[in-house]
Every structure is written in C-alpha cells, then in structure tokens.
Design a binder for these strands. Structure first.
Length: 820
DNA sequence: ATATACACGGATCCCCTATTTCC
DNA sequence: GGAAATAGGGGATCCGTGTA
C-alpha cells in the first residue's frame, strides 16, 4: 500500500531481541497510521592513529566475536564497517559496530575497551534520535510511504491487533514530499479534585475540549443547564468515560496545563487506588510517569503535551506575566482572563454550575493557548528534528544539542559523549568563567542619547573567531589567539585553529537562517514566519550558554572564557571608539553602548555606526537600538557609585524603556512600583522633577491616611526550594509556612503573597509582622513608607539633589524652594 | 533535572562589643 | 563587683529577581 504520511510520535519495541521503531502519524485522509520499521543500533569505536592493517583486522575479529547475555537477552555484534570519519577536529578511522539491541549498547561499549581503540562513542544517543539521523525520516514532515499493511497478521507477535490505529504498515520505501500543511487533532483536558494529592482526594470532574467538542464528566449530580455536563455513577466510571472519549476521538495531542506533574499522574494514581485499568495508550497501555525532579507523562501513540513546560522553557524569559499560572499566561497571550472561582473542598461548594463552567473554561483556555503556540511547536519540531513530545519538554541545552546531533552527518562527525558524573563534578569545580563587562554609569539625567548594540554578540563571536571545543589547539600555527584570560591568577591565551569547526559552522547555519527568517517575517508577517524566526532566535541566543553548560557534550571552559573575553574586548573597544568621535558614553552592558549625541545630527551617528561596522570581522554587526530624548541613571542604594543594570529612557515617540528599576520587579508592592513608574514618566516626559515630587507627596499623604487598597500593598515572591531547606527564614518563607498550615501543598515555584501589618510584637524582624491576604489587620504605615516608597524613589530624586527623607519627615520643607 | 555571567537590594544571620540586669 | 543577659552595629550571607 502507498500513501502520504506525516510522522508525529516515535517509539520502539523489542521483538525477538531486536529493536523496531513505531512511528505514529496521519495520512492524507486524516487516518491514524502506525508505521513499523527495522532499526539497527550501533556504536562507534575510534581507532588510534596509524594502526597497521594487521592490527585493525585483529581488533575487528575481536569485536565481531563479542556476544553477551544481558538481562536474559542474547546480544551480539551483528556487523562492523570501517569508516573515515571526523572527531573533534581530527580525521579518524572508526569502526561502526552494529549490535542486536539498543539497550545493550552501553554494555557492548564496556567490552570494547580493547587496545588500539581510543574512544567509544554514540552509545548514549537516544534510539529515536539515532533512527531519525540514520533513516532521515523527520517528525512533522510529509513523506510518501509504501509497505505491507498488517491486518490480523502474526508479524511481530501480532502487534497490529493491539495497536488501535486505522492502519499498521511495515515500511518498505519512502520519499520526502514538499507539502507543509497539517492540522493536528487536539484534545485538551483539565481535572478538578478535592486535594492536590491523589491519596487524599477524589477527582470531582474532568473537562475535555477539542474542535467541536466540549465535555465535563462528573459524578457530582448537581443541577445544570449545560448540555456539555455528563453525569456518571462514580469516580471509577469517570475514569472509564474519560478513556472512552480519548479512544473515540483518538487525538494526535492530548494537551494539559501542568499536566505532567498534576493531571496525568493524578489520573494514574486514582485508577490504581480504585484498582482499575487506565488503558489510555493506543496499545491500551497505561500512561507512564517518569519520576525525576521534573516528571514526564507519556501515553503510547498519543503525544501528551504539557503546555506549561513548553511555554516556560521557550518563552518565560521574554514574558511579562509575573507568574506562569494559566490565568496569567492566558491573559498575556490571549487577553482572556480565567473565570474567577474560589477553589475549595467539594463539601463547601455551593455554586456547582460555576464550577462546571470553570472546569471547562480551563480546558478551553489550554486549547486556545495550544492553537496560539502550535506554529511554534511545529516549527521547533521541524527545525530541531525531534518529536513534539521531546521539544515541548526539553530545556534549552537539550534543544541545542539535539539540533547539533541532527547536523553532525553533514560534517561526517562522530558525536561526542555526554559527560559522566565525575566529569560534571570536575567541570563544576573548575568554577565560573569571567563574564561580560558592565560600564559604571555616572548618575544623572541626560538628554539626546543614542544606543548601539551588537546583534547576537556571543554567537557572532563564535562564528567569526571559529571558537569551540574542537577548534581549541595548542599549536600557534594556523590558529588565532584569544584575548588574555585570567586562569588561576595568571594571564593566558588560548588558540583556536583557523580550519573551520563544525560547531561554529552549524551555528553559522542557525545565524543565517535566523537572519533570513527575521527578514521574511518583517516582509510577510504571519504566525508561521514568526514561529520560524523565533525558533532560530532561541537557538542562536542560547548557543554560548550551551558551551558553558557543565552538562553539555560540547562544553568547553576555554571556549566559553574566550567567547566572553571577546565580548569584553569588543564592548570596550566600541566604547572607546565612540568616545574618540566626540561623544560621552553614559552606559554599556555586555553588547550595548548608550551615549549622548552632543548636538550632532542623527545622520552623523549613522555614519559613525557604519564606520564601526566596517571595522568588525566576520558576521559581527552593530545595530542602532534607537535614539532617546532623555535617559536617567541613579546611584546604588548604598553609596556613591552609579547603579548598573538600572536605567530609564524615553524615545522620541514618548515610549519608555525601563530596565532594572523597582517598577519592573515583581517582589516590590505595586504601590511602590506604580509610584516609581509614575515618577519616572513625569521626569522623563517633562524633564521636570517638580511635578514628580508633588505626586510623591500625594501618595505619602494617602498612605498615612490609610487610603491605600490592600492589593496595592501585597508583596509577591516565590518559593524556589522545599521550605525546610531555607537557611535564612525570610518573610516570604514565613508566608509560605503560614500557607502550608492552611493545607496548601508547596511545589518549588509556588508564589506567595503577604503584607506587613501593624502588630504589637516587640520583634524588629519583618517576618514577625507579615500577614497573608485573608488575615485581618492594618498595614504598617512606617514599613511601607521607609521600606517601600522611599527606597524606590530616593535615588531618583537624589539626582536632582532633593532629599526625600527630609521631606517625609517634614523637615526643611520650607527650604525646598531654593532648588527650583 | 539543569543555557551563561553580572548586578541590585532587602532581610536575616552572625560575630563582636558595649551596656544593662541580676544576684 | 562580677557574671549573665541583652542591645546594637556592621559585615557576610542568603535569596529573589532583574539585564544582557
């Protein structure tokens, strides 16, 4: 049979000791397909230099005789091939060793510690990744496939009778197609339970939401006018109904929000407690929950997506939301707000109709979010060449590494291994590399500024200077030297070969595509071009972080420190050049320089920019970040020095760029944030601090008169580790403990909220005076004045030689006039 | 499990010394 | 009068959250 096929999810099974790949996807008619293919797992043995043929043959015969019994499985070396390959900048002779079963590769590798073999590699690349590399059947791309349809067949132990797809096909031939269009079948779900722990509470209801499908399944028989509410007898039937709908709809993606750690494990545990099966998989298998710091919930044949994870790793750096809750995230991306509903124990719920609505709404929001992010998810999968199950969960280092692994073939390169535990420890012991340079600003209000910044600075340095683990060399010949680096107190230079390395070349590919897709997006703005641009932007931006990451295959201390030495060098040189052309540099951080125009026209600034760019090597480039009417820099809280990473500028359209100020920090109360923001705006827009001071006085008056609303004084923060691990018992820890006493379960990243109240305790510690939102009490005027309002604005007014403290205390107010 | 370094600033912790309290 | 308790100052450290 012949058909078009788009692979979505990859898995494998063993049959008679060998590995077979299962690919789940759709054909052109939207039928669900499982493609079965044979896969021969292999490892690489890299030979020592200049081995005699006789020696190589000896090694080969030893390898070919390897046969072992592993966990009741007969495994042996099936065949070997000698290949000319590259490994970390060297041409090598290597033996490609095929073994019976993928799971035995590490054990085979143990038996390869033979004289003449220098290194063994490739045993730690995942089976799906290896398969995709080897066969070039990539996720989310269309193929024309042909092969036998298995129907009531005994092949592979009768697997087609277990797998509930429209067709199970044994792959014979395939070829790539150009088509791109694909609309996935998506089902979103959300549970409502009586407890956060499955041991302590039942599932009250579960909602499902897909295209033309909405459903709330519940055993709580309450009155409702909604047709989508379906009643079942009890929790057991609820689970069965859920399974039934999942099978009937048979989506490509089952999507939840935080469902890896909550919904799916909850379903599984409840089924276990009720002693029933939960056969969600396409082969009627139960979902598998892999425990770790981050749990992953997998369902065979259906890609389970936890949308929270994807959004967190991919977008949280660029998001405005102050938490990753469904409510906040939906607000940011959909403009929709979550229905308000106070979650409580079912025995205390009075309005069940609202609860049903709320439950469905969450699935609905998840569905809308998935639709919104679908172009990005699809593009990530295509670009990185890993299934959506992986790319929707993996962190940045894994994404980069996957991209690299899938591009090594183009360089005939054997993959490097993952570092072992001792190697990781060693890398961590070696300590951090020195980072970027930050220019210390002189506090003040400046007029008519320009800001330059380097485009993708670290990445363009790697590419332009050919820096990476494999280009590092001892030889000064045919290499370029790094700027001086301090290693254990001594100045040192590293050398990098002039011969292009695969790592910088792969990055160059990313860099160029990022440029192309960015231009494409600017020319033709749509969700696809945006997603493509985003994918390459993210890969490009995290490349240097990957090189310095202790868990990376291509980690290199020398490369990382050299990249950063170049970062410092280029920034300092640019600062100097801008100063030499008659400007006053105000500030610079890593890849940017802000300076005053000194009455020079914009055209002249652009000429300067061109001159700077002409002097840069390779793909390095400086951009004009913008012209600004005014900019404000302040001192640090303690002392006379100018504060770094803290400034506010206004451009000529009146838009503000505020960095680092309390305004943008979520761990300050909104009263302080809003006050500071307003004051910054008044100063920057008008260039006049007088109005700002009047405004401040009004706020202080209101505060003193207790006219400030509770929500404006709440201080938010989040818990980052188990509460008992805190060495310092800070207010936010106390708030967390108070919440815990109320029965709220704490995961890392739970946010807490509290305010400082007026109490009659003698203690001077703030933690003894905090109260949660619901707790009755009055706010401590003095605290909010001295610890929130004043600190947030004091340094701003200090620029204008106004002492806010004196004004607050009512002293010297009459003398104020002399400043104006 | 896990991209990097630099930076600010609040709050507590901890050590030291001076002062007060108690017998 | 002397020992123990307490207060307070100040630097170190912890901690969360920013910028790049």
């Amino acid at each position: 049979m012949e058909m078009k096929f788009i692979p979505i999810d990859f898995d494998y099974f063993d049959y008679e000791g060998k590995n077979y790949i299962e690919i789940f996807g759709r054909n052109e008619d939207g039928k669900k397909i499982c493609v079965i293919d044979f896969f021969e797992p292999y490892v690489w043995a890299i030979l020592e230099d200049n081995l005699k043929e006789k020696k190589i043959n000896e090694i080969l015969s030893r390898i070919n005789s390897i046969s072992l019994n592993s966990k009741g499985r007969e495994t042996k070396v099936e065949k070997t091939q000698i290949k000319e390959k590259n490994f970390l900048g060297k041409s090598v002779k290597a033996i490609k060793i095929y073994a019976t079963n993928y799971k035995d590769l590490p054990e085979i590798a143990e038996h390869l510690k033979i004289e003449g073999i220098e290194k063994i590699r490739g045993y730690d690349v995942g089976i799906t990744t290896s398969y995709i590399i080897e066969k070039k059947i990539e996720p989310m791309n269309w193929y024309k496939i042909s092969g036998d349809v298995l129907n009531e067949s005994d092949d592979f132990g009768g697997i087609d009778r277990i797998i509930e797809t429209d067709f199970v096909i044994k792959l014979e031939k395939f070829s790539s197609l150009k088509e791109e269009n694909f609309s996935p079948k998506v089902l979103c779900y959300d549970l409502e339970t009586d407890s956060l722990k499955p041991e302590n509470g039942e599932i009250l209801m579960v909602s499902l939401y897909g295209e033309n499908f909405k459903k709330v399944i519940t055993w709580k028989k309450k009155k409702t006018k909604h047709e989508y509410v379906e009643f079942v007898k009890d929790e057991k039937e609820l689970l069965e109904k859920f399974t039934e709908y999942l099978k009937k709809i048979s989506p490509d993606f089952l999507v939840g929000y935080n469902s890896d750690s909550f919904d799916l494990p909850f379903l599984k545990t409840r089924a276990k407690i009720l002693k029933i099966q939960l056969p969600l998989g396409i082969d009627s298998s139960e979902p598998s929950i892999s425990k770790g710091v981050f749990t992953r919930g997998k369902i065979n044949g259906i890609t389970h997506v936890d949308l929270l994870k994807f959004i967190k790793t991919t977008y949280s750096q660029y998001m405005q939301s102050e938490s990753m809750s469904l409510k906040e995230v939906s607000k940011e991306f959909l403009g929709d707000t979550k229905k308000d509903f106070e979650l409580r124990h079912s025995s205390k719920i009075s309005d069940w109709e609202k609860y049903f609505e709320y439950n469905l709404h969450d699935s609905n929001l998840t569905f809308q979010l998935f639709e919104k992010f679908w172009p990005d998810i699809l593009e990530f999968s295509r670009v990185i060449k890993e299934p959506i199950f992986e790319i929707s969960r993996n962190g940045l280092s894994k994404q980069i590494e996957s991209y690299i692994l899938h591009h090594l073939e183009e360089f005939n390169e054997i993959p490097e291994k993952k570092p072992g535990i001792s190697e990781i420890e060693e890398r961590r012991r070696k300590g951090n590399v020195e980072g970027a340079f930050v220019y210390e600003p002189k506090p003040g209000l400046y007029e008519d500024l320009a800001m330059f910044d380097f485009t993708s600075m670290h990445t363009s340095i790697i590419i332009s200077h050919n820096i990476s683990k494999e280009t590092l060399t001892d030889s000064k010949k045919n290499s370029t030297e790094s700027p001086e680096i301090l290693v254990g107190g001594k100045r040192k230079k590293f050398y990098f070969s002039k011969k292009r390395g695969f790592f910088p070349e792969i990055l160059k590919g990313i860099f160029e595509k990022r440029k192309i897709y960015k231009e494409e997006y600017q020319k033709n703005s749509n969700l696809i071009t945006k997603a493509r641009s985003n994918a390459f932007k993210l890969l490009s931006a995290s490349a240097h972080g990957y090189v310095g990451f202790f868990g990376a295959r291509y980690y290199s201390w020398e490369a990382s420190s050299t990249i950063l030495a170049f970062v410092r060098k280029y920034n300092l040189e640019t600062i100097k050049k801008i100063e030499n052309s008659g400007h006053k540099v105000i500030y610079g951080d890593t890849d940017s320089v802000a300076f005053t125009r000194e009455e020079k026209p914009k055209s002249e600034i652009k000429v300067l920019l061109k001159k700077l760019n002409d002097e840069l090597p390779g793909v390095m480039h400086i951009d004009l970040e913008g012209f600004f009417k005014r900019g404000l820099w302040v001192t640090t809280r303690s002392g006379e020095t100018g504060a770094k990473k803290k400034y506010a500028m206004i451009n000529e359209d009146g838009n503000l760029k505020i960095r680092g100020f309390e305004t943008v920090r979520r761990d300050w109360c909104s009263l302080a944030r809003i006050t500071q923001d307003h004051i910054l705006r008044l100063i920057l827009k008008e260039g006049n601090e007088k109005m700002a001071l009047e405004y401040l006085k009004e706020i202080i008056e209101k505060l003193k008169k207790r006219q400030i609303e509770k929500n404006e004084i709440m201080i938010k923060s989040s818990i980052k580790k188990p509460i008992e691990e805190y060495k310092s018992i800070t207010p936010h820890v106390v708030a967390a403990k108070k919440m815990q006493e109320k029965g709220i379960v704490f995961d890392p990243f739970t946010s807490v909220e509290y305010y400082v109240a007026k109490t009659n305790t003698k203690s001077k510690l703030i933690r003894d005076r905090i109260k949660l939102n619901g707790e009755p009490g009055e706010y401590d005027i003095n605290y909010y004045l001295q610890n929130q309002i004043i600190p947030s604005v004091e340094n701003i007014f200090q620029v204008f030689k106004i002492d806010v403290k004196e004004i607050v205390d009512g002293k010297k107010q009459e003398k104020l006039g002399k400043w104006f």
